[in-house]
């Protein structure tokens, strides 16, 4: 029982440490993929801000004035 508690606690410490490394990479810098993900999210947010959902009728009325 005691051993189990100790093992669980040690596992928690290891998880906390590893998750920190995975989030930022071992050097604390973002990977190319992570930067692309962040940038894409910013573009997606911007699209959400300025673009409304359209259907073909809306588009037709926009194009034909």
């Amino acid at each position: 029982m005691k051993l189990a508690i100790v093992l669980v606690l040690v596992a928690l410490v290891a998880v906390a440490f590893i998750s920190g490394c995975v989030q930022e990479g071992p050097t604390g810098e973002l990977t190319e993929e992570q930067m692309d993900d962040i940038a894409s999210q910013a573009v997606e947010d911007e699209m959400g801000d300025i673009l409304e959902d359209v259907n073909l009728e809306d588009l037709e009325s926009e194009l034909l004035g």
């Binding site: 810098e29 973002l30 930067m35 692309d36 962040i38 940038a39 894409s40 910013a42 573009v43 997606e44 911007e46 699209m47 673009l51 359209v54 259907n55 073909l56 588009l59």
Partner: peptide, 23 residues
Amino acid sequence: LIRIGVAGVKITMDENETIRKIG
């Protein structure tokens, strides 16, 4: 129907800045 967004995004981390052109 298509919907597009293309931009240069400035990512700032501490003192470092980088611009990713993505869409």
